[in-house]
């Protein structure tokens, strides 16, 4: 199958990649760019393990073609920390025990990152609704909520 050259910015770095038109964005990120932080959990857009920040929105990269990302600005978990300093969302997840097996964590944190920009001071209910596109099988969400609250406080104090 003929490949198409696309260009996208991932974690602040521009990449030119030749992809099959049918290749899913998650596979491009994981296999072409080696960014294996985002995961595949269901292939049907339900679990959110593949969530990336895409032109300022949370997007499930298992149901987007890489060619649709031509020209896009993407943030993955690998780009959350800044010069080795953890983002408050990352800090919150470890401080509040917001992860166990870690498989949903990258998608969950990328979603939380965007949620806190959409709503810097969310209530518990707003956090629960805001992360409801991301499934976690380990934590029961309680400590994820606390992690997001931690990040919200830290970000608003910055």
């Amino acid at each position: 199958m003929g490949k198409k050259l696309i260009s996208m910015t991932v974690n602040g770095q521009t990449h030119e990649v030749a992809v099959e038109p049918r290749q899913l964005l998650i596979h491009t990120l994981r296999e072409e760019l080696g960014l294996t932080g985002s995961h595949i959990g269901c292939e049907t857009s339900h679990c959110g393990a593949c969530t990336v920040d895409f032109n300022g929105e949370s997007v499930k990269s298992c149901t987007l073609l890489a060619v649709q990302a031509d020209g896009a600005d993407i943030l993955t978990v690998e780009g959350l920390a800044n010069d080795g300093v953890l983002h408050p969302v990352q800090e919150g997840f470890t401080e509040k025990h917001g992860l166990q097996c870690g498989f949903c964590t990258p998608g969950m944190m990328i979603r939380a990152y965007r949620l806190l920009q959409e709503n810097p001071n969310p209530s518990e209910e707003e956090i629960r609704t805001g992360i409801s596109g991301n499934l976690c099988r380990c934590t029961g969400y309680q400590n994820i909520v606390r992690a997001v609250q931690y990040a919200a406080e830290k970000l608003s104090a910055e």
Partner: peptide, 14 residues
């Protein structure tokens, strides 16, 4: 936690 929150977990498909 450190590796998981930075996308550096090492799962089979990785």
């Amino acid at each position: 936690d450190a590796r998981f929150i930075q996308g550096k977990g090492n799962y089979t498909d990785d």
